[in-house]
């Protein structure tokens, strides 16, 4: 037996002072953890890289270009009359994620479809002018998107995302 047990009151007596001190140690430890967690969030320079400008004058109907925005691909597709027609005429009930074509392009700019080139399933980049609906087809797990970038068939749960963008002029758009 050690010196400790010679004390009459036993070794495990707790009192308010000791508990308070322990609580301070706990709070301090938790506070110290936060900077180590937060450092993995996007840094200030990453957050600042918000917008990309694109000159779209060279894109012909039936063509699509891929632009890098915040490290992700953005498809800018100039749709043909037939493609627009195909997108508009779909019955809403056939869509897993119902959205009209009108909601997916800027007013009066039905020709121009701008979507994030990231499959909503698990993040692969879909192939253009492919799949059963001639919109996009994701080779990873077989998701089919139509000419409005809406999911029609396959495992993806949602339509291709439309990023925030605006027309600066008729031939210039700013994404983000």
């Amino acid at each position: 037996m050690s010196a400790a047990s010679h004390g009459g009151d036993g070794g495990e007596r707790r009192d308010f002072l000791v508990i308070t001190a322990g609580a301070f140690v706990g709070v301090g430890a938790v506070g110290l953890v936060w900077p180590f967690v937060d450092q993995m969030n996007p840094s200030a320079d990453v957050l600042a890289l918000s917008s990309t400008e694109v000159d779209i004058s060279g894109i012909e109907p039936g063509q699509s270009v891929t632009i890098s925005w915040r490290g992700k691909p953005v498809f800018v597709r100039r749709r043909t009359e037939a493609e627009i027609e195909a997108a508009v005429s779909v019955d809403m009930d056939d869509l897993p994620d119902p959205q009209s074509d009108l909601e997916r392009h800027k007013d009066g700019k039905a020709e121009w479809l701008v979507v994030l080139g990231i499959c909503t399933h698990l993040g692969c980049v879909p192939l253009g002018f492919a799949g059963e609906y001639d919109g996009w087809f994701c080779p990873c797990h077989g998701s089919h998107y139509d000419t409005s970038g809406r999911i029609r068939k396959g495992p993806a749960p949602a339509n291709l995302e439309v990023p925030e963008y605006e027309f600066l002029t008729d031939t210039q758009i700013k994404i983000g």
């Binding site: 002072l17 000791v18 308070t20 001190a21 322990g22 301070f24 140690v25 301090g28």
Partner: peptide, 8 residues
């Protein structure tokens, strides 16, 4: 915290 721990 130092004060509390010293007292504890």
């Amino acid at each position: 915290m130092s004060g509390l721990l010293y007292a504890a």
